[in-house]
Amino acid sequence: MDDSVAADDELLGFVPVPTTARRDGWTPDRQRLFIAILAEHGCVSAAARAAGMTPQSARRLRNRPDASAFVRSWTIARQMGRDRAYDEAVRRGRGVTVPVTYAGRVIGHRTRLDNRLLFAACYGSFLDR
Rank of each mutant, 00 (worst) to 15 (best):
M1F: 03
M1C: 05
D2N: 15
D2M: 14
D2T: 14
D2E: 13
D3I: 13
D3F: 12
D3S: 13
S4R: 15
S4K: 14
V5I: 14
V5Y: 06
V5D: 13
A7N: 14
D8F: 09
L11N: 04
L11M: 03
L11W: 05
F14K: 11
F14C: 11
P16E: 01
P16Q: 08
P16D: 07
V17M: 04
V17Q: 04
T19V: 11
T20A: 15
A21D: 15
A21L: 11
A21M: 09
A21N: 13
R22Q: 01
R22Y: 04
R23Q: 12
R23N: 10
G25M: 05
G25Q: 07
D29I: 04
D29G: 06
R30P: 06
Q31D: 11
Q31A: 08
R32I: 05
R32F: 05
L33N: 09
F34L: 11
I35L: 14
A36S: 12
A36C: 02
L38D: 02
L38I: 06
E40M: 03
H41S: 07
H41P: 00
C43N: 08
C43K: 00
V44A: 09
A47M: 05
A48I: 03
A48C: 06
R49K: 05
A50W: 00
A50V: 01
A51G: 05
G52I: 07
T54V: 04
T54L: 03
T54D: 12
Q56M: 10
Q56C: 03
Q56F: 04
S57P: 06
R59T: 02
L61Y: 09
L61H: 08
R62W: 07
N63D: 11
R64E: 11
R64T: 10
D66W: 00
D66L: 04
V71T: 13
V71G: 05
R72H: 05
R72T: 08
S73D: 02
W74K: 02
W74D: 00
I76H: 03
I76W: 03
Q79W: 06
M80D: 02
M80W: 04
G81Q: 11
R82M: 11
R82H: 08
R82P: 00
R82D: 02
D83W: 03
A85H: 09
A85V: 04
A85W: 02
A85K: 11
Y86P: 00
D87T: 13
D87M: 12
A89V: 03
R91G: 02
R91M: 04
R91I: 02
R92I: 11
R92H: 06
R92C: 07
R92P: 01
R92E: 08
G93C: 09
G95S: 09
G95T: 07
G95E: 09
V96N: 08
V96I: 14
T97H: 03
T101C: 02
T101W: 03
Y102C: 01
Y102R: 15
A103R: 15
A103I: 07
G104M: 13
T111E: 09
R112W: 08
L113N: 01
L113M: 07
D114K: 02
N115R: 14
N115H: 12
R116T: 08
L117M: 15
L117E: 11
L117I: 10
L118H: 00
A120I: 01
A120F: 10
A121C: 04
A121G: 03
C122L: 14
Y123F: 13
Y123M: 07
R129Q: 05
